[in-house]
């Protein structure tokens, strides 16, 4: 079964247009001002050391008896990077991988529709960056690429710091950086695994966004009774008889983990979107863009799309 169905294509267009109409959701970003490279005069400011002397407005200086510098401004081309977590935890569950690919497709469509340049990359087990997409007409190619993309199924764990290091080594121009991941790292703490990476990206000038992909199965709702828990990536196996009390203890930890991810993003002002693998397609497309699931109801164009 193909991941990208005509229904998805329809929802892609609809959800992106809906998101852009209602502020962009996770795609929203301020235009990058280029104070030194623009041609449009936007204002004056006090001269400071290092300013180009040629931009001193001598007429104003004469009137005010101060050195004033003319400020020129122009809109730069937006650059966006979409990094997809292709670790074993994301790939061994087909529905999770499918949801991730569909979310990537939605984000890519949204980014390209917004007029930005998109660079797509995967960061586990190795970091890969694929050629730049510059126009939304290339979306079809990207979707086919996503569908045919081969992902290694070797057990591995996410090392986000390494992935960030590899990404920064490519010396890409700063821009918006979308991370699509389930946020499970090597340890049992999100902050421990992901904080350093996000901080480095922010210091490098990247505007980070986190799209958190969760699978309800990970909450182990049905794991009552005798069960062998098996984590191949960690080489961890445990035979246990789970009671509801045990399950509740685990679920508390799981919920706390999800909360810690969201709390981290809030503190670091990282736009955060959470999508669930069991969501219907329409909901998934909207939530991937950081929009509430019921946004579509308020879109008057819905019936014409």
């Amino acid at each position: 079964m193909s991941i990208f169905t005509p229904e998805l294509e329809r929802h892609l267009t609809f959800s992106v247009q809906t998101a852009l109409r209602f502020g962009g959701g996770i795609l929203a970003s301020e235009s990058a001002k280029l104070p030194a490279g623009g041609t449009e005069l936007t204002g004056l400011r006090d001269y400071s050391t290092g300013d180009n002397p040629q931009r001193i407005d001598w007429g104003i200086c004469a009137r005010h008896d101060e050195l004033w510098v003319r400020v020129y401004e122009g809109t730069a081309q937006r650059r966006a990077y979409l990094l997809l977590d292709t670790s074993y935890g994301m790939c061994f569950q087909p529905e999770k991988l499918m949801a991730a690919k569909r979310a990537a497709a939605v984000l890519a469509t949204g980014i390209l529709t917004a007029g930005a340049l998109l660079e797509f990359g995967t960061f586990m087990p190795n970091f890969n960056l694929f050629p730049v997409l510059a126009h939304k007409q290339k979306c079809g190619n990207f979707l086919r690429f996503l569908e045919k993309m081969e992902i290694s199924t070797e057990p591995n764990l996410v090392n986000f710091e390494y992935a960030v290091h590899a990404f920064l080594a490519r010396k890409r121009q700063p821009g918006e950086l979308y991370v699509l991941s389930d946020c499970f790292g090597e340890s049992d703490s999100f902050r421990k695994d992901f904080e350093t990476g996000f901080r480095r990206l922010q210091r490098a000038g990247f505007s980070c966004r986190l799209i958190h992909l969760i699978n309800p199965d990970d909450r182990a709702e049905n794991f009552v009774g005798d069960v062998d828990i098996f984590d191949q990536a960690r080489n961890y196996q445990q035979s246990i008889t789970l009671t509801e009390r045990d399950l509740a203890a685990y679920q508390r930890l799981y919920d706390a983990y999800l909360e810690s991810v969201q709390e981290f993003c809030r503190k670091e002002t990282i736009p955060y979107a959470r999508i669930s693998t069991d969501s219907p397609l329409s909901t998934l497309c909207l939530t991937a863009l950081g929009m509430p699931a019921d946004t579509a109801k308020s879109n008057p164009w819905a019936e014409f799309i």
């Binding site: 389930d182 049992d188 828990i229 098996f230 984590d231 930890l253």
Partner: peptide, 8 residues
């Protein structure tokens, strides 16, 4: 049950 939340 294969899980990704072995740490938890």
């Amino acid at each position: 049950a294969q899980v990704v939340t072995g740490a938890l």
